[in-house]
Design a protein around this nucleic acid. Structure first.
Lengths: 247, 247
DNA sequence: CGCGAGATTGAGTTCTCTCAACTTCTGTGG
DNA sequence: CCACAGAAGTTGAGAGAACTCAATCTCGCG
């Protein structure tokens, strides 16, 4: 319900039950006894300062992350500079795909002060391989993640006009905020316009101008970093893909 | 090694051991006995004619597919017409992400005569939930798929110029052919130029002109549907991301 | 208060799209 | 085996979209 992104004063942690990793952090029934492996696996709410690097492309990937509060961006080295690969918001996972990879394929930087839950890959894999119930839950988590990535890339990929690209980007964020229990019509763009431009393969000037055009066409309202979507169905119709269904 | 795509006469099936699903199709050890569930789950090498629809967006998703021979395209309805979402080549999986979804999120059409292995989702899930070893293998499959999708989208997303987009598209195919045991420097583009254009969000004329430009710059050689990559490292350098490592 | 990063605006250039004509390829029926 | 029709591919010209560069503005922070 709460539509706040995060103020510096009060890091509103996302509730554990909207976190994509919650199945892993819940107690497990084994032969009539209930075990909670969370303590063994998870280092909860580790703090990173705005701008700080969380991990670096090429580093040994020992940890998976879940965002408890704040947001971050993922970047990869391309032709000597950094390209923005994606963003992550509270409740989402970072690098779950590294489960079977040795190194991080990209770097992660905090877009604001953030709190992350860190999960040791090795421990997680160990426990999963011993407790089928955990294995099954992990399966659900990874599988869900696969679905989400596929939906996102369906939305973001293949748009012809830049205006549609940007609209799709906003709509994708809306959908993801909804999935994390926030408002999908009112949220904050924590990244810079340059980050958005870089992510979408546009120039920052184009991003600025087209955000303004979308506003002129009443598809969004923009005030600095805050976005308001007057009618999410109008926006979905403009993009042509409906992820957010009328409830 | 074989670089052939597929001629109509001789449908060269991909070897099972390069299929992404092979862990599922291999016998399992349970309490000292070896079981092979393949027969229960998999309907092998089901034939579809060129142009035929394999499944339709919105349909109940009961099956997962692995391509044994041939290639296909995935499309989704966007604003009244069909947008090309992705392509699949031999050895690859189709819609593994529907494991936890009720309906197909896109349609699939054969780009040429193809043979598919069909796996019943329900049976697979049943067996996986009963046999931890199968669950673990399924986990590996899904996890690998997640990594692949992420790498692909890293490559394809965020390119500024259309020339880079097309180069990235070719490079992505090269990488995938390599993963399926084919040559990565010599393969066939089974889709039409219009399909490529639609997939990349470009016009077909631009695709044609830029393919020609890439050829003029000696990054690729194109002859109708056949592609040859003289130096894969040059192409990777042009795109700026190196998926294919020197062996 | 002043600095620097980020955001915005304008002008001119370049790239990509659209439209239309034309060629080539492919598959089908006679 | 040839003729034909339709689909796919190619090319050129003009219009429109997006980029680059440069100047200016705004805001947060020390």
């Amino acid at each position: 319900m709460a539509c706040s992104g995060s103020n510096k004063e009060e890091p509103k942690y996302v509730a554990c039950d909207v976190c994509r990793l919650s199945p892993i952090c819940s107690p497990v029934d084994v032969g009539g006894h209930t075990y909670d492996f969370t303590g063994k696996m998870v280092n909860r709410r580790h703090y990173f300062k705005k701008g700080e690097m969380i991990f670096k492309q090429g580093e040994q990937a020992r940890l998976i992350f879940a965002i408890s509060a704040g947001s971050l961006k993922l970047t990869a080295d391309v032709k000597g500079s950094k390209r923005v690969i994606d963003f992550r918001i509270p409740g989402e996972l970072v690098d779950i795909c590294s489960l079977n990879e040795g190194v991080y394929n990209y770097s992660a930087h905090a877009l604001e002060d953030i709190y992350l839950c860190e999960i040791g890959k090795e421990t997680l894999n160990d426990i999963a391989s011993q407790i089928p119930e955990v294995q099954g839950r992990l399966m659900k988590v990874v599988s869900q993640e696969l679905t989400n990535i596929q939906k996102s890339s369906m939305l973001l990929h293949g748009n012809v006009s830049s205006e549609e690209k940007i609209a799709a980007f906003i709509l994708n964020l809306a959908w993801r905020y909804l999935n994390s229990g926030y408002s999908c019509t009112e949220f904050k763009l924590n990244m810079t316009r340059t980050d958005i431009a870089d992510f979408l393969g546009l120039s920052k000037e184009t991003v600025i101008r087209l955000l303004k055009k979308l506003q002129k066409n009443h598809l969004i309202q923009i005030d600095g970093k805050r976005v308001h979507i007057p009618d999410i169905n109008d926006l979905q119709q403009f993009v042509g893909i409906e992820l957010i269904l009328p409830s």
